[in-house]
Amino acid sequence: MCSVVVAEDHPVVLGALRVVLESLGYKSIHVTSSGVDVVPMIREHSPELVVLDLKLNGFGGLEVLERIRAIGLVCKVVIFTSADPEHYLMRCRRAGAMAFVSKSASMQHLQNAIKAVRSGYTYFPGTFAGNVGQSEAHRDERELIARLSTREMEIMLKLARGESNKHIALAMNLSHKTISTYKTRLMLKLGVSSLVALGALVKRNGLF
């Protein structure tokens, strides 16, 4: 059986992942908690499968997906995350993921997803409720978020978590000036005037 790269930073989740992967015959399991390490590990180990969380240190999972596609690395990616599928499922699909499984689902769903992907199928089960029952203001916010690029999403989440421009710049290998420019652009696009308001918007829309 070919190897698998797992990008996950929670020990309990990682333990459950190992059980599932070993039950499917995977013997060589390479683990990282940092998005920065995923592409180098794929290059080193040439895994058949990548199990990727979206909430990682350094690069977020979406940015990792786009880097995998841009470089032309060949691997099957299963997203296993607690991130809201309404904001992320279609983004992940467009970026090349073959499956999206919520951590709130049973591990059987993950097992089914891996089996499907391994056989050459995609696995995006069910649908989400979308805008049903939401206020007009809330729908407007979600539409604004949907228009953000992957890089803008990553920086928005880091800013909302209280990370400084300097820290974000170092983590994403960008200049301080670039992060400052993204911050200003995000404020304008989302119609917020402070980081406190940005954090409230992110929380209100279930992004963390």
Rank of each mutant, 00 (worst) to 15 (best):
A95R: 04
L201Y: 01
S104W: 01
A99M: 02
V78A: 04
G130T: 04
N205M: 09
E163F: 14
V19A: 08
V6H: 00
E22I: 05
L207K: 00
E44L: 10
L73R: 06
C92F: 01
R67D: 13
L110K: 01
I79K: 03
Q134C: 03
F208G: 14
A129S: 07
A99T: 02
V20D: 02
E66R: 14
S193G: 13
L56C: 09
G133W: 10
R151A: 14
L73N: 04
A97W: 01
F208E: 11
K55F: 12
I114C: 00
M187F: 15
G130M: 00
G126Q: 05
Y88K: 01
V39E: 00
L190V: 06
S164I: 02
E163T: 07
S33D: 12
D140H: 09
T184C: 06
V6W: 00
V20K: 06
N165Q: 15
F124H: 07
A146F: 04
L188D: 12
G130K: 09
A83C: 11
G25S: 03
V20P: 01
G25R: 03
A113S: 05
Y182S: 08
Y123T: 09
R147H: 04
A7P: 01
R139A: 07
T150G: 10
G120L: 02
G25A: 06
K189P: 00
G130D: 04
V36C: 12
H45F: 14
E136I: 10
Y121V: 04
T81S: 12
K166M: 13
C75G: 06
M1T: 11
E154K: 06
S102P: 02
R151W: 11
E44M: 11
R94V: 12
A95H: 11
G35M: 08
K76L: 10
P125Y: 05
S23T: 11
I155Q: 07
L24D: 07
S175E: 13
R139Y: 02
H109I: 06
R147T: 09
E163I: 07
L65C: 12
G133A: 07
V196L: 15
Y123R: 04
S82N: 13
A95S: 12
G199Y: 06
A7E: 00
V12R: 04
T122M: 09
K203T: 09
L201Q: 01
E22R: 13
A70P: 01
E163Y: 14
Y88T: 08
T81M: 01
F208L: 15
K177Q: 15
M107Y: 15
G15R: 15
I29F: 11
C92A: 09
T178N: 13
G61N: 00
T181K: 14
L186C: 08
G126P: 03
L21S: 09
